[in-house]
């Protein structure tokens, strides 16, 4: 038996039922007001600032341990890391040269078509806080908030591709819903043939699915999925994932398509918040977008102009 040592053994707690009803009504009222109206934003922000120290206090030992391990790592490890990073940087620079030329060209083509949908304009980097918000939803907390200009619905990328979007903004932090959350959907396009559809999360960080493709749709395993930029939330042309598996059941009208996300959803520590160019800013900036990239003047090979950057997709059947 667990020892309760309390001397408070009076049979009744006065008005327990009354207080229970009172608090429950208060909670119900909060739920309704929070759901129906948006008046609680300020209260929520204030409370989240109060909660921030707790969140930092919990996250810091784990981050501190990482820092400690890094700072005592040996000279050899550091040298090896440095060599590896330099090699990666060199490779990335090679790729970038081509990318800048392509981007300049894309900008010009877009300007011709007056199509300003989804061109990324500005980035800031945020660190994912080492916290589990909810075991059943794929959300993470990032240390950038309203103070940094983050807004709800903003696209979030990581080094590999599309990470998610901002679902809630507090003063100092924001909550990002991952592309793999079961409640998340993102407009995408198959890079090989431009087929547009919607990628929906599954609640599993390693899988997305495309539930709205018919069995006759031209999609094969290995196809690269990129954002289509439709709907305006996400910049166009960023990788979302690669098709892992296509199941076609002739009895069904829709194919079951599984996608492996491109972003390292379970491993990323840093993510980028993206601001899209607005139509006006785009039209003024359109003539000289390549000004920032003098290293890559002139158009790239003509054959690359129609299709976005390289993709690992298999050729058409």
């Amino acid at each position: 038996m667990v020892a309760f040592r309390s001397t408070d053994t009076s049979g009744r707690t006065t008005g327990l039922l009354l207080r229970c009803i009172l608090y429950s009504l208060l909670a119900l009222g909060l739920i309704i007001v929070d759901k129906r109206y948006d008046h609680l934003g300020k209260i929520r922000r204030f409370l989240s600032v109060v909660a921030y120290p707790v969140q930092v206090a919990v996250a810091s030992p784990f981050e501190g341990w990482d820092w400690f391990r890094e700072s005592v790592s040996s000279r050899e490890t550091l040298r090896a890391d440095k060599a590896k990073l330099e090699a990666e940087l060199r490779l990335a620079n090679f790729r970038l040269q081509r990318y800048e030329a392509l981007e300049a060209e894309t900008q010009r083509l877009r300007a011709l078509r007056e199509n300003t949908a989804g061109v990324a304009n500005r980035f800031i980097v945020g660190n994912i806080m080492d916290l589990d918000i909810d075991a059943f939803r794929e959300r993470v907390l990032v240390d950038k908030g309203a103070r940094d200009g983050v807004f709800v619905g903003q696209a979030v990328l990581d080094a590999g591709g599309v990470f998610g979007q901002v679902s809630r903004v507090e003063e100092l932090t924001s909550e990002v819903i991952l592309v793999s959350d079961a409640a998340h959907a993102i407009p995408v396009q198959i890079n090989r043939n431009g087929l547009r559809t919607i990628a929906v999360g599954t609640g599993d960080m390693t899988r997305l699915k495309l539930p709205y493709l018919s069995t006759s749709a031209d999609v094969v395993a290995g196809d690269l999925l990129v954002t289509s930029g439709l709907g305006g939330g996400f910049p166009a042309g960023y990788p979302v994932g690669t098709i892992a598996e296509v199941k076609r059941d002739p009895a069904q009208s829709l194919a079951e398509v599984e996608v492996r996300p491109a972003a390292a959803l379970d491993r990323s520590r840093e993510v980028m918040f993206v601001w899209l160019k607005t139509a006006e800013a785009q039209s003024t900036a359109a003539p000289g977008p390549s000004a920032a990239s003098p290293s890559a003047p002139g158009p790239a090979a003509p054959s690359t102009s129609a299709s976005p950057p390289q993709h690992p997709g298999t050729p058409k059947k």
């Binding site: 327990l16 429950s24 208060l26 909670a27 909060l30 929070d34 609680l40 909660a51």
Partner: peptide
Amino acid sequence: DVIRGVVLGEHALAVTLMAA
């Protein structure tokens, strides 16, 4: 509620009822 980012009052209601 605040930490999990759900609708305000959800956990408050549940915990209050069960604590009572």
